[in-house]
Amino acid sequence: MHNELDAGLIRAALTADVAQLLGDIQVFASLDSTNAWALQHAQCGDVCLAEQQTAGRGRRGKAWESPAGTNVYLSLRWCFETVPAHLPMLGLVTGLAVAEALRDCGIEGHGIKWPNDIVVGGNNHLQKLGGILLEAVGSLQQVVIGIGLNVNRLPTATSAIDQPWSSLRACAGREFDRNQVVAAILTRLLPGLQVFSRLDMAQFQRNWQHWDVLHGCPVRVLAGSEVIEGIACGVDVQGQLRLEVRDGVIKAFSSADVSVRM
């Protein structure tokens, strides 16, 4: 099995239709952050990968632990002709692409925890496999899509991660060729980005419900300083989390931290 990231092997694993949507693939031994590099240096369609990140970032400014040689740290710079009307859906669509790519790689039992955490396990013990960080480049017509995914690192490894986590290797009981994992992600993600401006909302909501690990669960939502409890009931057409709080009343949240209530 090939243990190092290799741009040539990744490109060779793509179909011609997917490869034509891709720019350059840059692989670095170490970067502070693949998103930071892509924001400064990448062109439209370029992918940046690093074997290690020294200052990886997650949502809400949290650090993303990024040890060398075991995981996937990927950033893609994408450019739209015009700003899509439903740009807030981009993170959710990216999450769907990653979930489907993992299924293509033979992973089972995983899903998405709104807005775009890739998780595995039952609702009372969700473990994080990966996350997504979107950053706009000046105009909202350009965006850097960052994906961090635990691949071959085992949860027994020394870690400062402050939440339950797992990896593809722990789920499947075998090591993965990270080049094949990256190719699977790009195979799902790039065609989705190409048609994102024409997103079929009804189809998206059906796809989301298939992967939504929160659907129908009692959850606690932290929105700013407010804590709200209710039943998660999918997403609306803006990608907001829908929460049934009482007597059928629905609240929607565009940004919040969500945990499952026992």
Rank of each mutant, 00 (worst) to 15 (best):
L129M: 13
A252R: 15
L49R: 11
N71V: 00
D212M: 03
L186P: 02
S225D: 14
I250K: 10
G239R: 10
E226F: 01
Q205M: 12
M262Q: 04
L149E: 05
P84A: 00
Q141H: 13
N123A: 09
Y73L: 10
V27L: 01
P155R: 05
W37I: 08
D6W: 04
T158M: 03
G146F: 03
I112S: 12
E81S: 13
A184C: 05
P115V: 15
V151A: 14
R198N: 08
H110D: 10
D212Q: 13
H110Y: 05
D17Q: 14
Q203G: 02
G8Q: 14
R174N: 00
P67G: 04
I107W: 07
R103M: 09
S166N: 12
E4K: 11
L193T: 04
S166R: 10
D212H: 12
E4T: 05
V249M: 06
H210R: 15
L9M: 02
I147P: 11
W114P: 09
G111D: 10
D24E: 14
I145P: 04
D236M: 09
E100D: 08
D257P: 05
H125E: 03
A184R: 14
Q238S: 10
N152F: 03
G23C: 09
V47K: 05
S225C: 00
G122E: 13
T34C: 04
D236E: 03
A29S: 14
L193K: 09
Q53V: 03
Q43F: 05
S66E: 08
G56A: 04
L189M: 01
Q238N: 05
H2C: 03
D46Q: 06
A184L: 02
F253V: 09
L193S: 06
S159Q: 08
G109D: 07
I185A: 03
I25R: 04
I145V: 12
V18D: 01
S66C: 07
N152G: 11
R174I: 03
D24W: 02
A136G: 08
L129G: 07
L214K: 08
R153Q: 10
S66K: 06
V93D: 00
L39Y: 09
P155S: 05
P164M: 01
E51Y: 05
P191K: 03
H2D: 08
S33F: 00
T70C: 15
M1N: 01
D162E: 14
G138I: 07
D32C: 03
V213K: 15
V221C: 06
A97F: 08
L133Q: 07
S225N: 14
T158Q: 11
F196G: 00
R188H: 12
S33Y: 00
E229G: 13
E175M: 09
Q20F: 02
C217N: 06
W165S: 13
L92P: 02
Q53G: 13
E175S: 14
V237K: 14
Q205C: 10
V260P: 15
Q141G: 05
F80M: 02
